[in-house]
Amino acid sequence: MLQYPLSAALPGAIRQVGYVVRDLDRALDDWLSLGVGPWYVMRGMSVHVLYRGQPCTITVSIALGNSGDLQVELLQQDDETPSIYTEFLASGREGYQQLAWWVDDLDAAVQAIVGTTGWPVVWSSDDTKSSLRYAYLEPPTGPAHVIEIMERTADTDGFAEMLRAAAAAWDGSQPIRTRTPHVAS
């Protein structure tokens, strides 16, 4: 039987697929044409992170929606500050960038993944400025440019359930719904 040591380190099912886009509105139109929605959009969010170990602040617009139980995230960086997103775009890519897992204990999950794979943490929440905790790890090869691990809280679970329920009940009306920024990746 084949053994996959990484699968033992990754915590359960993939919960989110993330796309980095240059034009959020065009990307939303593309996803809506596939029947995925509604989308909850937060524009102009200031995000404080550690980028390759150094403090960094960027401005992003994010859209979140579900297809069944899978959450889809669209990210457009609104400024030119060097980041994991500008790196991705500068490499000639746009679109699919990340897979995300959600965990109860971020520190333990990241430690287990780093210990198993040696992948570096290249982007992470700044715990002094955000209650949302997450880390992006960078594998040397696919299946994704980065692997995101996000810590679950009552707020993140509630928001995820709201997105899932909205998609399940969506009748095509109000395809774009503006939200006050409070969730950032």
Rank of each mutant, 00 (worst) to 15 (best):
G158K: 03
G18E: 00
L6D: 00
Q98G: 05
S67R: 13
L137W: 01
G35E: 15
V72E: 02
P55Y: 06
H182L: 05
G44N: 14
V146F: 00
A9W: 04
V110R: 10
Q71W: 08
C56F: 03
V60A: 14
Y96G: 00
A166D: 07
T156P: 11
D126R: 09
V72H: 14
Y96F: 15
S7W: 09
T116W: 02
T141N: 05
T141C: 04
V60P: 04
Q54T: 12
R152M: 14
Q71N: 09
K129E: 12
R22L: 06
Y40Q: 08
V146I: 12
W102M: 09
G115L: 08
R93M: 09
N66A: 13
G172Q: 08
W39L: 11
Q16R: 02
S124D: 06
Q54E: 15
D105K: 01
L2D: 07
L99N: 05
G18C: 08
D79I: 06
T86A: 00
D30G: 05
Y96M: 13
R93W: 09
S83V: 13
H182C: 01
L75D: 08
S125D: 10
Y96I: 06
T57I: 09
Q76P: 07
G35C: 13
W39K: 01
L132S: 11
E148S: 10
P120V: 03
